[in-house]
Design a protein around this nucleic acid. Sequence first.
DNA 1: CGCACATATGAACAGATGTTCATATATACC
DNA 2: GGTATATATGAACATCTGTTCATATGTGCG
Lengths: 125, 125
Amino acid sequence: MVELDRCDINCIHDEAVQAVRQALFGEDVAASLAELFKALGDPTRVKILFSLMTRELCVCDLTAVIGVSDSAVSHQLRVLRTLRLVKFRREGKILYYSLADDHIERLFAQGLEHVTEPKSEMNEE
Amino acid sequence: MVELDRCDINCIHDEAVQAVRQALFGEDVAASLAELFKALGDPTRVKILFSLMTRELCVCDLTAVIGVSDSAVSHQLRVLRTLRLVKFRREGKILYYSLADDHIERLFAQGLEHVTEPKSEMNEE
DNA sequence: CGCACATATGAACAGATGTTCATATATACC
DNA sequence: GGTATATATGAACATCTGTTCATATGTGCG
């Protein structure tokens, strides 16, 4: 029940705005969602996650597969860990990383569907 | 069939690396995926897209709902348009934006599932 | 045509992001 | 304990990103 401070521009469709406002999730949810997607929005992290879809891998393997420094991988793994996208288990000095759950696989599947979709015709200006 | 230039580090699990390498999609796909998710990785764009899930809206409505300048909305709409996430139709001087397809709805649904999931227990160090 | 409105665009700027390099931690083995 | 390996972390830095402000485009109307 937010008192909507009516904008002074006049092209606004009031009921539409009110309806959408009520349906709209809060700042925090929007921020969380954005944070999640942002984490998926980097080529290195995408490759890490996709690699882990095949099987669990150690940091060393990841650097070999993806072709970036171990430091870079490590930094990115931290991002993914913080967002609970990956988990790991230790075996001696080696850490084996794997996907935290199957949300990522489904997100990737959806994403790939959009990306590889036959772009009917650009709707760009 | 990429000839894998074996990394000089020795903790690598060779067959694992080779297997994953073969399964891994190309640079271009990884880049496209990352680009898509990056587009979803901003609070303003998240709110725009979520608003459009309810119904089509003009730019003015969006500024009112989300509470940012029309210029900012416009800039973000361009990003979303470029990635074919939204489309629009003109009616006089007003442009009505709407979601380009239903991939976004499904991506959001998946994303929300992850975000709102009861975080069993942090797996952070 | 000229003006008003709805939206788009470009430049500028502050803040965020990803990598590198150097260094630290943790574990195994001698 | 000391050394080697696997990984993590912090600082530094160049690049990218999102907003704002000023200005441009496009449409309707008188």
